[in-house]
Design a binder for these strands. Sequence first.
DNA 1: GGTTGACTCTGAAGCTGGATCAGGGTTTAT
DNA 2: ATAAACCCTGATCCAGCTTCAGAGTCAACC
Lengths: 283, 283
Amino acid sequence: MFRIGEFSKIAQTAVSQLRYYDRIGLFQPSHTDKFTSYRYYSADQLPDLNRILALKELGLTLDQIKRMVLDDVSAEEIRGMLSLRKAQVEQTLQEEVNRLRVIESRLKQVEAHGQMKQDDVILKSVPAQPFYSTRNLLPELFDGVSIMGELMQLVPKVVGQNKMSHLTAVIHGDAFQVEKADVEMGFLLNDAFDMPLLLPSGNEVKMRILPAEPQVISAVRIGPFENGFESYANLGRWVQENGFVINGPAREIFIDPPTPDSQETAVCEIQFPVKIGTPMLTS
Amino acid sequence: MFRIGEFSKIAQTAVSQLRYYDRIGLFQPSHTDKFTSYRYYSADQLPDLNRILALKELGLTLDQIKRMVLDDVSAEEIRGMLSLRKAQVEQTLQEEVNRLRVIESRLKQVEAHGQMKQDDVILKSVPAQPFYSTRNLLPELFDGVSIMGELMQLVPKVVGQNKMSHLTAVIHGDAFQVEKADVEMGFLLNDAFDMPLLLPSGNEVKMRILPAEPQVISAVRIGPFENGFESYANLGRWVQENGFVINGPAREIFIDPPTPDSQETAVCEIQFPVKIGTPMLTS
DNA sequence: GGTTGACTCTGAAGCTGGATCAGGGTTTAT
DNA sequence: ATAAACCCTGATCCAGCTTCAGAGTCAACC
Protein backbone atom coordinates (compact mmCIF):
# COMPACT_ATOMS: atom_id res chain seq x y z
CA MET A 1 0.00 0.00 0.00
CA PHE A 2 1.21 3.46 -0.93
CA ARG A 3 0.20 6.80 0.42
CA ILE A 4 -0.96 9.31 -2.12
CA GLY A 5 2.42 11.02 -2.50
CA GLU A 6 4.34 7.92 -3.38
CA PHE A 7 1.60 6.60 -5.62
CA SER A 8 1.55 9.92 -7.45
CA LYS A 9 5.27 9.56 -8.18
CA ILE A 10 4.91 6.01 -9.45
CA ALA A 11 2.00 6.93 -11.66
CA GLN A 12 3.41 10.28 -12.76
CA THR A 13 0.20 11.93 -11.71
CA ALA A 14 -0.30 15.01 -9.57
CA VAL A 15 -1.55 14.48 -6.04
CA SER A 16 -4.30 17.02 -6.61
CA GLN A 17 -5.39 15.07 -9.65
CA LEU A 18 -5.69 11.83 -7.70
CA ARG A 19 -7.74 13.57 -5.04
CA TYR A 20 -9.92 15.08 -7.75
CA TYR A 21 -10.50 11.69 -9.39
CA ASP A 22 -11.45 10.36 -5.99
CA ARG A 23 -13.95 13.16 -5.46
CA ILE A 24 -15.70 12.67 -8.77
CA GLY A 25 -15.70 8.91 -8.26
CA LEU A 26 -13.56 8.13 -11.29
CA PHE A 27 -10.69 6.41 -9.51
CA GLN A 28 -10.69 5.74 -5.81
CA PRO A 29 -8.00 4.48 -3.44
CA SER A 30 -8.35 0.82 -2.59
CA HIS A 31 -8.57 1.79 1.04
CA THR A 32 -9.28 4.96 3.00
CA ASP A 33 -8.49 5.19 6.69
CA LYS A 34 -11.70 5.75 8.61
CA PHE A 35 -10.05 7.91 11.25
CA THR A 36 -7.44 9.93 9.42
CA SER A 37 -9.04 9.93 5.94
CA TYR A 38 -5.62 9.07 4.52
CA ARG A 39 -5.89 7.51 1.09
CA TYR A 40 -4.03 4.24 0.49
CA TYR A 41 -3.46 2.93 -3.03
CA SER A 42 -2.29 -0.55 -3.95
CA ALA A 43 0.15 -1.35 -6.73
CA ASP A 44 -2.39 -3.39 -8.64
CA GLN A 45 -4.52 -0.30 -9.14
CA LEU A 46 -1.90 1.05 -11.52
CA PRO A 47 -3.32 -0.60 -14.64
CA ASP A 48 -6.72 0.89 -13.89
CA LEU A 49 -5.26 4.35 -13.56
CA ASN A 50 -3.20 3.89 -16.67
CA ARG A 51 -6.25 2.93 -18.64
CA ILE A 52 -7.88 6.13 -17.50
CA LEU A 53 -4.84 8.19 -18.46
CA ALA A 54 -4.66 6.51 -21.84
CA LEU A 55 -8.28 7.38 -22.57
CA LYS A 56 -7.75 10.89 -21.33
CA GLU A 57 -4.92 11.31 -23.78
CA LEU A 58 -7.31 10.57 -26.58
CA GLY A 59 -9.14 13.68 -25.43
CA LEU A 60 -12.22 11.97 -24.03
CA THR A 61 -13.94 13.81 -21.21
CA LEU A 62 -13.73 12.42 -17.70
CA ASP A 63 -17.45 11.73 -17.83
CA GLN A 64 -17.06 9.57 -20.91
CA ILE A 65 -14.11 7.78 -19.37
CA LYS A 66 -16.10 7.18 -16.23
CA ARG A 67 -18.79 5.48 -18.26
CA MET A 68 -16.28 3.38 -20.15
CA VAL A 69 -14.37 2.09 -17.16
CA LEU A 70 -17.05 1.87 -14.46
CA ASP A 71 -20.28 0.95 -16.20
CA ASP A 72 -19.50 -1.86 -18.54
CA VAL A 73 -20.55 -0.53 -21.83
CA SER A 74 -20.98 -2.40 -25.11
CA ALA A 75 -18.35 -2.55 -27.81
CA GLU A 76 -20.82 -0.82 -30.10
CA GLU A 77 -21.09 2.12 -27.78
CA ILE A 78 -17.34 2.35 -27.39
CA ARG A 79 -17.03 2.38 -31.15
CA GLY A 80 -19.50 5.24 -31.25
CA MET A 81 -17.61 7.30 -28.74
CA LEU A 82 -14.32 6.71 -30.46
CA SER A 83 -15.53 7.56 -33.92
CA LEU A 84 -17.24 10.69 -32.63
CA ARG A 85 -13.98 11.67 -31.03
CA LYS A 86 -12.15 10.82 -34.22
CA ALA A 87 -14.30 13.24 -36.16
CA GLN A 88 -13.63 15.94 -33.61
CA VAL A 89 -9.90 15.41 -33.78
CA GLU A 90 -9.97 15.52 -37.57
CA GLN A 91 -11.80 18.81 -37.40
CA THR A 92 -9.49 20.46 -34.91
CA LEU A 93 -6.56 19.13 -36.89
CA GLN A 94 -7.86 20.98 -39.94
CA GLU A 95 -8.38 24.09 -37.88
CA GLU A 96 -4.88 23.97 -36.49
CA VAL A 97 -3.45 23.62 -39.96
CA ASN A 98 -5.35 26.70 -41.09
CA ARG A 99 -4.32 28.57 -38.00
CA LEU A 100 -0.71 27.77 -38.65
CA ARG A 101 -0.96 29.03 -42.22
CA VAL A 102 -2.56 32.26 -41.11
CA ILE A 103 0.00 32.81 -38.37
CA GLU A 104 2.81 32.22 -40.80
CA SER A 105 1.42 34.70 -43.29
CA ARG A 106 0.96 37.28 -40.54
CA LEU A 107 4.51 36.71 -39.37
CA LYS A 108 5.85 37.22 -42.87
CA GLN A 109 3.87 40.39 -43.08
CA VAL A 110 5.15 41.74 -39.78
CA GLU A 111 8.70 40.98 -40.77
CA ALA A 112 8.34 42.59 -44.17
CA HIS A 113 6.34 45.70 -43.29
CA GLY A 114 7.09 46.06 -39.61
CA GLN A 115 3.40 46.37 -38.91
CA MET A 116 0.15 44.53 -38.54
CA LYS A 117 -2.12 45.88 -41.20
CA GLN A 118 -4.91 44.18 -43.08
CA ASP A 119 -5.77 42.19 -40.01
CA ASP A 120 -9.43 42.90 -40.32
CA VAL A 121 -10.20 39.96 -42.57
CA ILE A 122 -12.19 37.27 -40.83
CA LEU A 123 -13.77 34.00 -41.83
CA LYS A 124 -17.38 33.37 -40.91
CA SER A 125 -20.58 31.82 -42.12
CA VAL A 126 -23.80 33.47 -43.26
CA PRO A 127 -27.32 32.03 -43.20
CA ALA A 128 -29.73 32.01 -46.12
CA GLN A 129 -31.87 35.15 -46.23
CA PRO A 130 -34.64 36.60 -48.41
CA PHE A 131 -33.30 39.22 -50.82
CA TYR A 132 -35.60 41.75 -52.50
CA SER A 133 -33.51 42.83 -55.46
CA THR A 134 -33.06 43.86 -59.06
CA ARG A 135 -30.21 42.67 -61.29
CA ASN A 136 -28.57 44.78 -63.97
CA LEU A 137 -25.68 44.96 -66.35
CA LEU A 138 -24.23 48.34 -65.58
CA PRO A 139 -22.02 50.10 -68.13
CA GLU A 140 -20.17 51.61 -65.17
CA LEU A 141 -20.32 50.70 -61.51
CA PHE A 142 -21.22 54.28 -60.83
CA ASP A 143 -24.54 53.85 -62.59
CA GLY A 144 -25.70 51.77 -59.67
CA VAL A 145 -26.04 54.84 -57.50
CA SER A 146 -29.25 56.03 -59.10
CA ILE A 147 -30.85 52.60 -58.73
CA MET A 148 -29.80 52.56 -55.10
CA GLY A 149 -31.52 55.88 -54.62
CA GLU A 150 -34.76 54.54 -56.05
CA LEU A 151 -34.56 51.43 -53.89
CA MET A 152 -33.99 53.41 -50.71
CA GLN A 153 -36.96 55.62 -51.50
CA LEU A 154 -39.51 53.08 -52.65
CA VAL A 155 -38.83 49.73 -51.04
CA PRO A 156 -39.56 50.88 -47.44
CA LYS A 157 -42.96 52.06 -48.59
CA VAL A 158 -44.10 48.75 -50.05
CA VAL A 159 -42.29 46.33 -47.73
CA GLY A 160 -42.31 48.24 -44.44
CA GLN A 161 -39.32 49.40 -42.44
CA ASN A 162 -39.53 46.70 -39.82
CA LYS A 163 -39.27 43.81 -42.29
CA MET A 164 -36.16 45.20 -43.93
CA SER A 165 -32.59 44.47 -43.09
CA HIS A 166 -29.55 45.93 -44.86
CA LEU A 167 -29.19 47.42 -48.30
CA THR A 168 -27.03 44.95 -50.19
CA ALA A 169 -25.36 44.41 -53.54
CA VAL A 170 -24.32 41.09 -55.05
CA ILE A 171 -21.61 41.39 -57.66
CA HIS A 172 -22.15 38.59 -60.12
CA GLY A 173 -19.46 39.42 -62.61
CA ASP A 174 -15.80 39.56 -61.85
CA ALA A 175 -15.65 41.57 -58.67
CA PHE A 176 -12.35 43.13 -59.64
CA GLN A 177 -13.69 44.59 -62.85
CA VAL A 178 -15.34 47.97 -63.05
CA GLU A 179 -16.90 48.24 -66.49
CA LYS A 180 -19.93 46.23 -67.56
CA ALA A 181 -20.52 45.03 -64.05
CA ASP A 182 -23.30 42.53 -63.45
CA VAL A 183 -24.74 43.74 -60.19
CA GLU A 184 -27.82 42.77 -58.18
CA MET A 185 -29.01 45.39 -55.73
CA GLY A 186 -31.72 45.35 -53.11
CA PHE A 187 -32.59 44.80 -49.50
CA LEU A 188 -32.12 41.78 -47.30
CA LEU A 189 -35.42 40.98 -45.57
CA ASN A 190 -36.36 39.38 -42.29
CA ASP A 191 -39.43 37.72 -43.81
CA ALA A 192 -40.50 36.65 -47.26
CA PHE A 193 -42.29 39.31 -49.35
CA ASP A 194 -43.38 37.98 -52.69
CA MET A 195 -44.86 41.03 -54.40
CA PRO A 196 -42.64 42.47 -57.16
CA LEU A 197 -42.08 46.19 -57.56
CA LEU A 198 -41.42 48.20 -60.72
CA LEU A 199 -38.97 51.08 -60.30
CA PRO A 200 -39.36 54.34 -62.27
CA SER A 201 -36.16 53.45 -64.13
CA GLY A 202 -37.92 50.32 -65.42
CA ASN A 203 -36.08 47.77 -63.31
CA GLU A 204 -38.14 45.12 -61.61
CA VAL A 205 -37.50 44.27 -57.95
CA LYS A 206 -38.27 40.67 -56.98
CA MET A 207 -37.64 38.48 -53.99
CA ARG A 208 -35.38 35.46 -54.02
CA ILE A 209 -33.54 33.53 -51.37
CA LEU A 210 -29.91 34.43 -51.16
CA PRO A 211 -28.31 31.09 -50.28
CA ALA A 212 -26.41 30.40 -47.08
CA GLU A 213 -22.64 30.29 -47.34
CA PRO A 214 -20.73 28.11 -44.89
CA GLN A 215 -17.52 30.07 -45.37
CA VAL A 216 -17.21 33.69 -46.34
CA ILE A 217 -14.37 36.06 -45.71
CA SER A 218 -15.38 39.45 -44.61
CA ALA A 219 -13.80 42.88 -44.46
CA VAL A 220 -15.28 46.22 -43.59
CA ARG A 221 -14.74 49.40 -45.52
CA ILE A 222 -15.41 52.82 -44.08
CA GLY A 223 -15.93 55.80 -46.34
CA PRO A 224 -16.92 56.25 -49.97
CA PHE A 225 -16.85 53.65 -52.75
CA GLU A 226 -13.33 54.46 -53.78
CA ASN A 227 -11.95 53.09 -50.52
CA GLY A 228 -13.37 49.76 -51.47
CA PHE A 229 -10.49 48.93 -53.75
CA GLU A 230 -8.11 48.63 -50.84
CA SER A 231 -10.44 46.25 -49.02
CA TYR A 232 -10.79 44.17 -52.18
CA ALA A 233 -7.05 43.99 -52.53
CA ASN A 234 -6.70 42.86 -48.91
CA LEU A 235 -9.30 40.19 -49.36
CA GLY A 236 -7.66 38.99 -52.54
CA ARG A 237 -4.27 38.76 -50.86
CA TRP A 238 -5.77 37.00 -47.85
CA VAL A 239 -7.43 34.40 -50.05
CA GLN A 240 -4.16 33.66 -51.80
CA GLU A 241 -1.93 33.63 -48.77
CA ASN A 242 -4.19 31.45 -46.71
CA GLY A 243 -4.86 28.86 -49.34
CA PHE A 244 -8.50 29.46 -50.13
CA VAL A 245 -10.22 30.08 -53.44
CA ILE A 246 -13.19 32.30 -54.21
CA ASN A 247 -16.37 30.31 -54.51
CA GLY A 248 -19.21 32.56 -55.56
CA PRO A 249 -20.30 36.15 -56.17
CA ALA A 250 -19.16 38.83 -53.75
CA ARG A 251 -21.64 40.66 -51.56
CA GLU A 252 -21.54 44.21 -50.32
CA ILE A 253 -23.70 44.88 -47.30
CA PHE A 254 -24.32 48.51 -46.53
CA ILE A 255 -24.46 48.58 -42.79
CA ASP A 256 -24.44 52.33 -42.64
CA PRO A 257 -25.51 53.26 -46.16
CA PRO A 258 -23.96 56.24 -47.92
CA THR A 259 -26.21 59.25 -48.34
CA PRO A 260 -25.08 62.33 -50.23
CA ASP A 261 -24.05 64.08 -47.02
CA SER A 262 -22.54 61.11 -45.17
CA GLN A 263 -20.20 59.67 -47.75
CA GLU A 264 -17.24 59.75 -45.40
CA THR A 265 -18.83 57.78 -42.59
CA ALA A 266 -20.58 55.13 -44.67
CA VAL A 267 -19.82 51.58 -43.51
CA CYS A 268 -19.95 48.59 -45.81
CA GLU A 269 -19.12 44.96 -45.25
CA ILE A 270 -17.63 43.09 -48.18
CA GLN A 271 -18.06 39.32 -48.28
CA PHE A 272 -16.54 36.68 -50.54
CA PRO A 273 -17.71 33.10 -50.37
CA VAL A 274 -14.62 30.88 -50.30
CA LYS A 275 -13.61 27.27 -50.04
CA ILE A 276 -10.36 25.58 -49.21
CA GLY A 277 -8.10 25.58 -52.23
CA THR A 278 -5.72 22.94 -53.40
CA PRO A 279 -2.88 22.99 -50.92
CA MET A 280 -0.10 25.38 -51.79
CA LEU A 281 3.34 24.07 -52.46
CA THR A 282 5.07 25.99 -49.72
CA SER A 283 8.24 23.91 -49.97
CA MET B 1 -26.25 53.37 -33.76
CA PHE B 2 -27.28 49.81 -33.07
CA ARG B 3 -28.48 48.21 -29.89
CA ILE B 4 -26.58 45.18 -28.79
CA GLY B 5 -28.93 42.65 -30.37
CA GLU B 6 -28.73 44.05 -33.85
CA PHE B 7 -25.01 44.65 -33.63
CA SER B 8 -24.53 41.07 -32.53
CA LYS B 9 -26.33 39.88 -35.67
CA ILE B 10 -24.25 42.06 -37.94
CA ALA B 11 -21.03 40.95 -36.32
CA GLN B 12 -22.05 37.31 -35.92
CA THR B 13 -21.14 37.50 -32.28
CA ALA B 14 -23.15 36.42 -29.27
CA VAL B 15 -24.72 39.13 -27.17
CA SER B 16 -23.21 37.65 -24.06
CA GLN B 17 -19.81 37.79 -25.69
CA LEU B 18 -20.16 41.50 -26.46
CA ARG B 19 -21.19 42.17 -22.89
CA TYR B 20 -18.24 40.14 -21.67
CA TYR B 21 -15.81 42.06 -23.87
CA ASP B 22 -17.28 45.25 -22.50
CA ARG B 23 -16.78 44.07 -18.93
CA ILE B 24 -13.14 43.17 -19.41
CA GLY B 25 -12.51 46.39 -21.31
CA LEU B 26 -11.52 44.72 -24.56
CA PHE B 27 -14.21 46.19 -26.77
CA GLN B 28 -16.69 48.74 -25.54
CA PRO B 29 -19.78 50.27 -27.11
CA SER B 30 -19.20 53.71 -28.54
CA HIS B 31 -21.92 55.01 -26.26
CA THR B 32 -23.69 53.79 -23.16
CA ASP B 33 -26.89 55.40 -21.95
CA LYS B 34 -26.32 56.93 -18.56
CA PHE B 35 -29.82 56.21 -17.34
CA THR B 36 -30.76 52.86 -18.83
CA SER B 37 -27.23 51.40 -19.22
CA TYR B 38 -28.21 50.33 -22.72
CA ARG B 39 -25.17 49.74 -24.93
CA TYR B 40 -25.11 51.46 -28.33
CA TYR B 41 -22.62 50.42 -31.00
CA SER B 42 -21.77 52.31 -34.17
CA ALA B 43 -21.14 50.71 -37.53
CA ASP B 44 -17.60 51.99 -37.72
CA GLN B 45 -16.68 49.87 -34.70
CA LEU B 46 -17.02 46.75 -36.82
CA PRO B 47 -13.44 46.75 -38.10
CA ASP B 48 -12.15 46.95 -34.53
CA LEU B 49 -14.25 44.01 -33.48
CA ASN B 50 -13.25 42.07 -36.56
CA ARG B 51 -9.60 42.62 -35.79
CA ILE B 52 -10.20 41.18 -32.34
CA LEU B 53 -12.03 38.18 -33.74
CA ALA B 54 -9.27 37.58 -36.28
CA LEU B 55 -6.63 37.54 -33.57
CA LYS B 56 -8.79 35.32 -31.43
CA GLU B 57 -8.97 32.81 -34.23
CA LEU B 58 -5.23 32.56 -34.16
CA GLY B 59 -5.66 31.30 -30.62
CA LEU B 60 -4.23 34.30 -28.82
CA THR B 61 -5.61 34.92 -25.36
CA LEU B 62 -7.90 37.88 -24.79
CA ASP B 63 -5.22 39.45 -22.62
CA GLN B 64 -2.70 39.33 -25.43
CA ILE B 65 -5.25 40.71 -27.86
CA LYS B 66 -6.05 43.48 -25.46
CA ARG B 67 -2.42 44.47 -25.39
CA MET B 68 -2.15 44.34 -29.16
CA VAL B 69 -5.19 46.44 -29.93
CA LEU B 70 -5.32 48.87 -27.02
CA ASP B 71 -1.73 49.57 -26.04
CA ASP B 72 0.19 50.22 -29.20
CA VAL B 73 2.89 47.67 -29.09
CA SER B 74 6.04 47.43 -31.22
CA ALA B 75 6.31 45.27 -34.31
CA GLU B 76 9.08 43.36 -32.55
CA GLU B 77 6.78 42.45 -29.70
CA ILE B 78 4.04 41.38 -32.07
CA ARG B 79 6.53 39.20 -33.85
CA GLY B 80 7.41 37.61 -30.52
CA MET B 81 3.84 36.88 -29.62
CA LEU B 82 3.12 35.41 -33.03
CA SER B 83 6.14 33.17 -33.14
CA LEU B 84 5.46 31.95 -29.63
CA ARG B 85 1.96 31.12 -30.70
CA LYS B 86 3.28 29.48 -33.85
CA ALA B 87 5.40 27.13 -31.78
CA GLN B 88 2.42 26.24 -29.64
CA VAL B 89 0.27 25.49 -32.66
CA GLU B 90 2.98 23.32 -34.16
CA GLN B 91 3.13 21.36 -30.93
CA THR B 92 -0.58 20.80 -30.59
CA LEU B 93 -0.70 19.91 -34.27
CA GLN B 94 1.80 17.14 -33.61
CA GLU B 95 -0.20 16.00 -30.62
CA GLU B 96 -3.41 15.90 -32.59
CA VAL B 97 -1.77 13.83 -35.28
CA ASN B 98 -0.62 11.30 -32.68
CA ARG B 99 -4.02 11.29 -31.06
CA LEU B 100 -5.66 10.57 -34.36
CA ARG B 101 -3.33 7.63 -35.00
CA VAL B 102 -4.01 6.17 -31.58
CA ILE B 103 -7.76 6.59 -31.92
CA GLU B 104 -7.68 4.91 -35.30
CA SER B 105 -5.75 1.95 -33.99
CA ARG B 106 -8.15 1.62 -31.04
CA LEU B 107 -11.09 1.74 -33.42
CA LYS B 108 -9.63 -0.98 -35.58
CA GLN B 109 -9.12 -3.04 -32.48
CA VAL B 110 -12.67 -2.58 -31.25
CA GLU B 111 -14.03 -3.50 -34.64
CA ALA B 112 -11.86 -6.57 -34.93
CA HIS B 113 -12.08 -7.96 -31.40
CA GLY B 114 -15.29 -6.35 -30.21
CA GLN B 115 -13.53 -5.25 -27.07
CA MET B 116 -11.16 -2.74 -25.62
CA LYS B 117 -8.20 -4.69 -24.39
CA GLN B 118 -4.58 -3.69 -24.17
CA ASP B 119 -5.64 -0.20 -23.33
CA ASP B 120 -3.22 0.06 -20.50
CA VAL B 121 -0.32 1.30 -22.58
CA ILE B 122 0.52 4.91 -21.92
CA LEU B 123 3.17 7.32 -23.07
CA LYS B 124 5.07 9.29 -20.46
CA SER B 125 8.45 10.70 -19.58
CA VAL B 126 10.85 9.63 -16.87
CA PRO B 127 13.50 11.75 -15.16
CA ALA B 128 17.15 10.77 -14.73
CA GLN B 129 17.72 8.84 -11.52
CA PRO B 130 20.64 7.21 -9.71
CA PHE B 131 20.72 3.47 -10.26
CA TYR B 132 22.71 1.15 -7.96
CA SER B 133 23.14 -1.91 -10.11
CA THR B 134 25.10 -4.86 -11.44
CA ARG B 135 25.12 -5.95 -15.08
CA ASN B 136 25.38 -9.56 -16.22
CA LEU B 137 25.10 -11.79 -19.23
CA LEU B 138 22.65 -14.39 -18.05
CA PRO B 139 22.52 -17.78 -19.75
CA GLU B 140 18.80 -17.82 -18.91
CA LEU B 141 16.59 -15.00 -17.75
CA PHE B 142 15.68 -17.19 -14.83
CA ASP B 143 19.23 -16.95 -13.47
CA GLY B 144 18.49 -13.37 -12.52
CA VAL B 145 16.33 -14.49 -9.66
CA SER B 146 19.22 -15.43 -7.40
CA ILE B 147 20.97 -12.11 -8.01
CA MET B 148 17.74 -10.34 -7.20
CA GLY B 149 17.61 -12.20 -3.93
CA GLU B 150 21.10 -11.07 -2.99
CA LEU B 151 20.31 -7.48 -3.93
CA MET B 152 17.15 -7.41 -1.84
CA GLN B 153 19.02 -8.77 1.14
CA LEU B 154 22.21 -6.75 1.04
CA VAL B 155 21.55 -3.38 -0.59
CA PRO B 156 19.17 -2.10 2.10
CA LYS B 157 21.87 -2.76 4.70
CA VAL B 158 24.56 -0.65 3.04
CA VAL B 159 22.44 2.05 1.39
CA GLY B 160 19.60 2.40 3.90
CA GLN B 161 15.91 1.78 3.27
CA ASN B 162 14.94 5.41 3.04
CA LYS B 163 17.30 6.23 0.20
CA MET B 164 16.05 3.38 -1.93
CA SER B 165 13.34 3.46 -4.48
CA HIS B 166 12.19 0.53 -6.58
CA LEU B 167 13.97 -2.68 -7.50
CA THR B 168 14.59 -2.38 -11.23
CA ALA B 169 16.04 -4.29 -14.17
CA VAL B 170 17.35 -2.81 -17.42
CA ILE B 171 17.33 -5.24 -20.31
CA HIS B 172 20.21 -4.28 -22.56
CA GLY B 173 19.97 -7.04 -25.10
CA ASP B 174 17.02 -7.73 -27.28
CA ALA B 175 14.13 -7.54 -24.87
CA PHE B 176 12.19 -10.17 -26.77
CA GLN B 177 14.91 -12.79 -26.41
CA VAL B 178 15.20 -15.09 -23.43
CA GLU B 179 18.57 -16.79 -23.69
CA LYS B 180 21.85 -15.01 -23.12
CA ALA B 181 20.10 -11.96 -21.82
CA ASP B 182 22.19 -8.92 -21.00
CA VAL B 183 20.50 -7.64 -17.87
CA GLU B 184 21.36 -4.93 -15.37
CA MET B 185 19.66 -5.28 -12.00
CA GLY B 186 19.61 -3.06 -8.95
CA PHE B 187 17.77 -0.36 -7.09
CA LEU B 188 16.75 3.11 -8.16
CA LEU B 189 17.91 5.58 -5.49
CA ASN B 190 16.66 8.91 -4.29
CA ASP B 191 20.19 10.21 -3.70
CA ALA B 192 23.61 9.42 -5.05
CA PHE B 193 25.51 6.65 -3.22
CA ASP B 194 28.98 6.14 -4.63
CA MET B 195 30.31 3.19 -2.62
CA PRO B 196 30.38 -0.09 -4.59
CA LEU B 197 29.27 -3.38 -3.11
CA LEU B 198 30.50 -6.92 -3.83
CA LEU B 199 27.81 -9.57 -3.80
CA PRO B 200 28.54 -13.15 -2.58
CA SER B 201 28.03 -14.35 -6.13
CA GLY B 202 30.95 -12.15 -7.17
CA ASN B 203 28.97 -9.47 -8.98
CA GLU B 204 29.86 -5.87 -8.25
CA VAL B 205 27.11 -3.34 -7.57
CA LYS B 206 27.92 0.24 -8.60
CA MET B 207 25.99 3.45 -8.94
CA ARG B 208 25.38 5.18 -12.25
CA ILE B 209 22.87 7.69 -13.47
CA LEU B 210 20.10 6.11 -15.46
CA PRO B 211 19.39 8.78 -18.07
CA ALA B 212 16.10 10.61 -18.40
CA GLU B 213 13.88 9.53 -21.24
CA PRO B 214 11.51 12.08 -22.75
CA GLN B 215 9.21 9.41 -24.14
CA VAL B 216 8.67 5.95 -22.76
CA ILE B 217 5.71 3.70 -23.20
CA SER B 218 4.64 1.94 -20.10
CA ALA B 219 2.53 -1.08 -19.27
CA VAL B 220 1.92 -2.80 -15.98
CA ARG B 221 2.03 -6.52 -15.44
CA ILE B 222 0.48 -8.21 -12.45
CA GLY B 223 1.59 -11.67 -11.39
CA PRO B 224 4.66 -13.78 -12.03
CA PHE B 225 7.28 -13.33 -14.73
CA GLU B 226 5.49 -15.49 -17.21
CA ASN B 227 2.67 -12.98 -17.53
CA GLY B 228 5.24 -10.51 -18.76
CA PHE B 229 5.19 -11.92 -22.26
CA GLU B 230 1.69 -10.69 -22.85
CA SER B 231 2.62 -7.19 -21.75
CA TYR B 232 5.64 -7.26 -24.02
CA ALA B 233 3.50 -8.33 -26.93
CA ASN B 234 1.06 -5.51 -26.23
CA LEU B 235 3.83 -2.96 -26.06
CA GLY B 236 5.34 -4.27 -29.25
CA ARG B 237 2.02 -4.03 -31.08
CA TRP B 238 1.39 -0.58 -29.69
CA VAL B 239 4.74 0.68 -30.90
CA GLN B 240 4.05 -0.60 -34.40
CA GLU B 241 0.49 0.52 -34.69
CA ASN B 242 1.11 4.00 -33.39
CA GLY B 243 4.11 4.73 -35.51
CA PHE B 244 6.87 4.81 -32.93
CA VAL B 245 10.14 2.92 -32.81
CA ILE B 246 11.99 1.55 -29.81
CA ASN B 247 14.83 3.80 -28.80
CA GLY B 248 16.77 2.20 -25.97
CA PRO B 249 16.90 -0.64 -23.48
CA ALA B 250 13.71 -1.71 -21.75
CA ARG B 251 13.26 -1.25 -18.01
CA GLU B 252 11.31 -3.34 -15.57
CA ILE B 253 10.41 -1.59 -12.36
CA PHE B 254 9.23 -3.84 -9.57
CA ILE B 255 6.66 -1.74 -7.81
CA ASP B 256 5.48 -4.61 -5.69
CA PRO B 257 8.40 -7.02 -5.93
CA PRO B 258 7.80 -10.74 -6.19
CA THR B 259 8.71 -12.73 -3.09
CA PRO B 260 8.44 -16.52 -3.02
CA ASP B 261 5.01 -16.35 -1.37
CA SER B 262 3.58 -13.38 -3.29
CA GLN B 263 4.26 -14.34 -6.87
CA GLU B 264 0.67 -13.87 -7.90
CA THR B 265 0.26 -10.34 -6.64
CA ALA B 266 3.62 -8.97 -7.75
CA VAL B 267 3.31 -5.76 -9.76
CA CYS B 268 5.85 -4.67 -12.31
CA GLU B 269 5.97 -1.73 -14.67
CA ILE B 270 7.58 -2.30 -18.04
CA GLN B 271 9.00 0.69 -19.87
CA PHE B 272 10.34 1.07 -23.39
CA PRO B 273 12.00 4.30 -24.50
CA VAL B 274 10.56 5.24 -27.88
CA LYS B 275 10.74 7.93 -30.48
CA ILE B 276 8.53 8.83 -33.38
CA GLY B 277 9.20 6.52 -36.28
CA THR B 278 9.16 7.28 -39.95
CA PRO B 279 5.52 7.84 -40.83
CA MET B 280 3.64 4.72 -41.85
CA LEU B 281 2.21 4.45 -45.29
CA THR B 282 -1.40 4.11 -44.32
CA SER B 283 -2.67 4.82 -47.80
C1' DG C 1 -52.81 55.83 -22.38
C1' DG C 2 -52.51 51.08 -21.43
C1' DT C 3 -50.89 46.61 -22.68
C1' DT C 4 -48.29 43.26 -24.88
C1' DG C 5 -44.08 41.25 -26.38
C1' DA C 6 -39.47 41.78 -27.64
C1' DC C 7 -35.47 43.58 -25.96
C1' DT C 8 -32.00 44.93 -22.44
C1' DC C 9 -29.81 45.44 -17.93
C1' DT C 10 -27.01 43.57 -13.70
C1' DG C 11 -25.09 40.12 -10.91
C1' DA C 12 -24.50 35.39 -9.74
C1' DA C 13 -23.58 30.81 -10.84
C1' DG C 14 -21.99 27.07 -13.92
C1' DC C 15 -18.95 24.74 -17.18
C1' DT C 16 -13.65 21.58 -17.47
C1' DG C 17 -10.02 19.69 -15.13
C1' DG C 18 -7.80 20.49 -12.06
C1' DA C 19 -3.96 23.96 -9.13
C1' DT C 20 -3.18 26.43 -5.13
C1' DC C 21 -3.79 27.79 -0.58
C1' DA C 22 -5.12 28.11 4.37
C1' DG C 23 -5.58 25.92 8.52
C1' DG C 24 -5.22 21.99 10.75
C1' DG C 25 -4.04 16.79 11.81
C1' DT C 26 -0.51 12.54 11.19
C1' DT C 27 3.82 9.96 10.50
C1' DT C 28 8.38 9.25 10.74
C1' DA C 29 13.24 10.12 11.59
C1' DT C 30 16.36 11.78 14.51
C1' DA D 1 10.39 15.14 22.16
C1' DT D 2 10.41 17.62 18.25
C1' DA D 3 11.03 18.98 13.63
C1' DA D 4 10.28 17.85 8.87
C1' DA D 5 7.61 15.89 5.75
C1' DC D 6 3.35 14.39 4.69
C1' DC D 7 -1.75 14.34 4.48
C1' DC D 8 -6.60 16.00 5.15
C1' DT D 9 -10.83 19.08 3.91
C1' DG D 10 -12.91 22.88 1.90
C1' DA D 11 -12.55 27.19 -0.46
C1' DT D 12 -11.06 29.87 -4.19
C1' DC D 13 -9.13 30.58 -8.79
C1' DC D 14 -8.08 29.99 -13.98
C1' DA D 15 -10.44 31.20 -19.43
C1' DG D 16 -13.98 32.51 -21.95
C1' DC D 17 -17.72 32.59 -22.03
C1' DT D 18 -23.21 30.83 -21.31
C1' DT D 19 -27.29 30.67 -18.71
C1' DC D 20 -30.42 32.22 -15.45
C1' DA D 21 -33.25 35.16 -12.32
C1' DG D 22 -35.36 39.33 -11.54
C1' DA D 23 -36.12 43.76 -12.99
C1' DG D 24 -36.28 47.68 -16.23
C1' DT D 25 -37.04 49.70 -21.44
C1' DC D 26 -38.79 50.30 -25.91
C1' DA D 27 -41.86 50.25 -29.95
C1' DA D 28 -46.16 49.13 -31.64
C1' DC D 29 -50.93 48.40 -31.56
C1' DC D 30 -55.63 49.20 -29.79
